Simulated assay, not measured.
Amino acid sequence: MPGLSPRRTDPPSPSPTRTTATATAAATATATAPAATPSRPAAVPPPATSPPAPAPPPPPIEARYRVADTFPGGFIGELSIRNASRGDLGWVARVEYPGGRVVTAWLEGVPQGTFQDRRGTLVYRSGPDLAAGSAVALRFHVEFASSRPASCVVSGRPCGGL
């Protein structure tokens, strides 16, 4: 056409502002896009732990053996028996002297229980229950045996002092 100048046909250059904004948007999208992660099982909570067990209570009956007196052919043995519980308890003492003979047994200052000599084994059953926190002395006369017993238990618990 006459009088018209030819048009330019090359594409326009992108403006610097638009290029920077597009690059920034692309970088932001890449940074915030969640990364693909492999599938993993759900977290398993650690097993529940039980609280530590409380300390065992003291033995309800405590006994301590000693030799109170010696003489030719025999001796007087003694068990100091203490009720360490919070309630009154009965008890049974068993002291073994193989080959010996238990002549008699008695409690000091309290009502008596019952005693048996079974071929050198003293078995003494308390009379009235022993009050909580109190103690009693069981004495016994033994002949023809060592003053150290083969065994000594009170209500199933070993005696101290041996």
Rank of each mutant, 00 (worst) to 15 (best):
R86P: 02
R82L: 13
D69F: 09
S39R: 12
F71S: 15
S80A: 15
G99Y: 03
Y124K: 05
W106T: 12
Q116V: 13
W106V: 12
P58M: 07
P12Y: 06
R157A: 14
R148H: 02
A23P: 01
A68L: 13
R148W: 00
G77V: 09
C152L: 07
T37A: 13
A145H: 07
A53Y: 00
S134Q: 12
E78Y: 00
C159Q: 05
A42G: 13
S50N: 08
G127N: 06
T19H: 00
A35M: 10
V92F: 01
V67H: 05
A27P: 02
A26E: 04
P6C: 05
S13R: 15
G87Q: 10
E78C: 14
L107S: 09
P47A: 14
A21M: 11
A150C: 01
T49C: 01
D129S: 13
P56I: 08
A25D: 03
D117E: 03
R8P: 00
R101T: 14
L79Q: 13
R139K: 14
P111K: 04
T37D: 08
P149G: 12
V123F: 02
L122D: 09
S80I: 14
F71Q: 11
G113L: 06
D129F: 05
T37Q: 11
G87A: 13
R86Y: 03
T20C: 02
E108M: 04
F71L: 08
G120S: 09
A48N: 05
E143K: 10
V103R: 11
V136C: 05
E62C: 02
L122P: 03
A68D: 12
V142K: 04
R118F: 09
I81E: 04
W91P: 06
T32Y: 08
S147Y: 02
S5L: 08
G156S: 08
P54R: 14
T28Q: 04
A55P: 10
V153K: 01
S15L: 10
L130W: 08
T24M: 10
V95E: 09
T17C: 02
V67E: 07
A43S: 08
V123E: 12
A23N: 02
A43D: 08
V102T: 14
A55L: 10
L79I: 11
A93I: 07
P59Y: 03
E108P: 00
P41E: 10
D88R: 11
V92S: 06
A55R: 11
L162R: 03
V92T: 15
R139D: 01
G120E: 04
P2A: 10
A63E: 06
G133L: 09
P47F: 03
T9S: 10
L79C: 11
R119S: 14
A21F: 07
V103N: 08
G161P: 04
E96G: 07
